[in-house]
């Protein structure tokens, strides 16, 4: 049976797939780890999106192609939601190795080293250029919504760099949904009951809440 939704992304996209299952949305998924996304283990060629050099990803892709009977799985016109482009666990920690903070209005600046917003934008652009190009190409053949990872903790630079990735995707014409807008309208981080024991990833219930909120905004319709 043709799925209603395709989910593509890193470990944060698992909660979205599990949420879809909870809601009874027919969804198919392709996940591989954020570090492999960060390390550009993917391409977009004549057969559409493909994982490269990622055994689990390549196997999932092959299985999806067989199941759906097409080569370009993400070019079928089925809505795609994805966490493509964020992978903050690989992007943000190195930025702070030398005690840097991206300047954020209203946040304390009296310790450590301050990096300008423009520098951080250039830094992110260098590491995320291919992700953004790929998102733009995916969006040409299907309704694509990139889902930002819901904030699970308050650590330096996560919020700033998350915002920069969001803005760069949007500037490329890609739709981005930020679960903060509906789940955390007053700010803060996800409550413990919506987080897995690792304190980083959202639960299936949280995934379902995100999908419901997206549906209400008309972001899941084909």
């Amino acid at each position: 049976m043709t799925p209603e939704l395709l989910i593509l992304g890193d470990s944060h996209s698992i909660a979205l797939k599990e949420g879809a299952d909870l809601l009874g949305i027919r969804a198919e998924a392709l996940h591989f780890s954020g570090s492999q996304w960060h390390d550009l283990k993917f391409s977009y060629g004549t057969h559409g999106f493909e994982p490269r050099g990622v055994r689990a990803g390549v196997q999932q892709m092959r299985a999806l192609r067989e199941k759906l009977g097409v080569t370009d799985v993400f070019g079928m016109g089925i809505p795609v939601i994805s966490t493509l482009g964020f992978h903050l666990g690989r992007l943000v920690p190195p930025f702070g190795w030398n005690d840097h903070r991206v300047f954020e209005p209203g946040k304390p600046t009296d310790s450590g080293l301050i990096a300008s917003t423009r520098f951080a934008e250039d830094y992110v652009a260098l590491y995320r250029a291919r992700h953004i190009r790929t998102a733009r190409r995916l969006a040409r053949n299907a309704k694509l919504v990139i889902v930002a990872p819901p904030p699970a903790f308050d650590r330096p630079n996560y919020d700033a760099i998350r915002g920069i990735v969001t803005r760069q995707l949007q500037a490329a014409g890609v739709t981005v949904y930020d679960p903060k807008d509906d789940l955390l309208p007053k700010g803060g981080t996800l409550p413990a009951e919506l987080l897995m024991p690792d304190g980083v990833h959202a639960t299936a219930e949280c995934g379902a809440m995100i999908l419901q909120a997206m549906a209400e905004r008309g972001l899941l319709a084909a």
């Binding site: 890193d10 470990s11 698992i14 797939k17 998924a29 996940h31 591989f32 780890s33 954020g34 570090s35 689990a56 196997q59 999932q60 299985a63 666990g89 690989r90 920690p93 190195p94 702070g96 190795w97 030398n98 690792d198 980083v200 990833h201």
Partner: peptide, 28 residues
């Protein structure tokens, strides 16, 4: 030391992500 601690932390997080994905994939 800061760099290597952070690298180790990222490697631990990678492992968690990998395991989550493999588990999910195996279930499927």
């Amino acid at each position: 030391a800061t760099e290597s601690e952070s690298e180790a932390e990222m490697a631990r997080e990678d492992l968690v992500c990998e395991e989550m994905i493999l588990e999910k994939f195996n279930d499927a």
